[in-house]
Amino acid sequence: MMTQNSLSVSNDNEKEQLLLKAQISILKQELNEIEQKISSFEAILRSHLTNLLIEEQELTVLYKKLQKAKKEKRLAQKKKGKKFKEVIGLKVIIDKNKATYNTEEQKNKKRLYREAMLYVHPDKFSMNEGKIDIATEITTKLIEIYQTGSLEELQTYHTHIFSGNALLHFSESASVYLDITVKDTYLQKELEQLKSQLKNTKTKHTYKVLTEYENPMLFIDELKEYYTDRIFKLKKRTRKANLFDL
């Protein structure tokens, strides 16, 4: 049975978690709104620059092909030299320490994954419909992190689960694992990542145009000037190119 002090700490922990979730929800909404505005504005820009964008891309591809052809020509000229030695193959050096580290990392990931999965598997809550959906959501996230995330991410989520914050007070038998003094770093880390993502999104040039230009549509003229100049330079660099030779 939990003591009065433990209950007080647990309540504080729950309040902190709810606050973090509220902050995360607000940031997600703001980020989503900004990304939608940027996406819509960029779609308008592309619709006004379609021909220039296509021509610029075609010339860029042609320029890269031309550069590749020049490189191959220089290599062919070097081969004619008496001292030229062709590289037959590449010697692959295996870093044993790195290989050992990767193996150990995979073992740790598998251990953390199995511990967390057994602890929060939905089947444990078959008699509590209110917890099954939450457990399913948590295990889905756990599988995703295990398959695509890093060891550090898995460790953080593992702590999040065993701190009791993933499923607050879901099982009396789970109290043996529950350590309410463990700081829930998962939500805090998610909050910091959202803040960083929001900050980076706001540094996008198109967002600055939207928020700083009195008339954002004037940016179209700036882009037309930029792509016209770039196309002019690319045409000069590729004027001797013969498409049939590339």
Score class of each variant (00 low, 15 high):
residue 3 T to Y: 02
residue 63 Y to G: 00
residue 119 Y to P: 00
residue 156 T to S: 09
residue 1 M to P: 04
residue 102 N to S: 10
residue 9 V to C: 06
residue 37 K to P: 01
residue 93 I to H: 11
residue 18 L to K: 15
residue 77 Q to L: 14
residue 171 S to P: 05
residue 74 R to H: 13
residue 55 E to L: 08
residue 143 I to T: 14
residue 70 K to T: 01
residue 40 S to W: 01
residue 184 D to I: 02
residue 19 L to W: 11
residue 96 K to E: 14
residue 27 L to S: 07
residue 29 Q to H: 12
residue 212 E to H: 11
residue 51 N to K: 13
residue 237 R to V: 01
residue 81 G to N: 12
residue 8 S to G: 02
residue 140 T to L: 06
residue 4 Q to P: 10
residue 125 F to L: 05
residue 164 G to Q: 02
residue 178 L to N: 00
residue 127 M to S: 15
residue 177 Y to V: 07
residue 94 I to D: 05
residue 30 E to N: 13
residue 26 I to Y: 06
residue 77 Q to H: 11
residue 241 A to H: 07
residue 246 L to M: 14
residue 21 K to E: 11
residue 52 L to H: 05
residue 17 Q to L: 07
residue 239 R to F: 10
residue 218 L to N: 14
residue 109 K to N: 03
residue 157 Y to I: 06
residue 9 V to E: 05
residue 94 I to P: 03
residue 2 M to F: 00
residue 234 L to Y: 05
residue 84 F to A: 03
residue 70 K to P: 06
residue 39 S to A: 12
residue 181 T to L: 07
residue 145 I to D: 01
residue 245 D to P: 01
residue 196 S to K: 13
residue 225 E to V: 11
residue 151 L to H: 08
residue 25 S to W: 07
residue 159 T to I: 10
residue 188 Q to D: 09
residue 217 M to W: 08
residue 230 R to A: 02
residue 19 L to T: 10
residue 63 Y to K: 14
residue 156 T to L: 14
residue 180 I to E: 03
residue 143 I to A: 07
residue 105 E to Q: 15
residue 48 H to P: 05
residue 170 F to L: 03
residue 188 Q to R: 14
residue 114 R to M: 12
residue 173 S to D: 09
residue 199 K to E: 15
residue 183 K to S: 09
residue 228 T to D: 08
residue 42 E to C: 09
residue 20 L to D: 06
residue 231 I to P: 00
residue 4 Q to T: 14
residue 219 F to I: 04
residue 142 L to R: 01
residue 181 T to M: 06
residue 129 E to C: 02
residue 150 S to C: 04
residue 61 V to F: 09
residue 228 T to V: 01
residue 115 E to N: 12
residue 187 L to W: 05
residue 28 K to Q: 14
residue 126 S to H: 08
residue 85 K to M: 08
residue 207 Y to H: 15
residue 108 N to L: 15
residue 21 K to C: 03
residue 209 V to W: 04
residue 227 Y to H: 08
residue 85 K to W: 09
residue 235 K to F: 01
residue 67 Q to K: 15
residue 188 Q to E: 12
residue 205 H to M: 12
residue 173 S to W: 00
residue 91 K to W: 02
residue 90 L to W: 07
residue 246 L to R: 06
residue 177 Y to M: 08
residue 62 L to Y: 02
residue 227 Y to G: 01
residue 190 E to H: 05
residue 142 L to S: 03
residue 57 Q to S: 15
residue 91 K to G: 09
residue 3 T to G: 04
residue 214 E to H: 10
residue 31 L to R: 05
residue 125 F to V: 12
residue 203 T to N: 13
residue 57 Q to I: 10
residue 143 I to H: 08
residue 97 N to H: 09
residue 163 S to P: 00
residue 15 K to A: 08
residue 42 E to F: 01
residue 145 I to K: 03
residue 172 E to K: 07
residue 97 N to M: 04
residue 127 M to A: 15
residue 201 T to K: 15
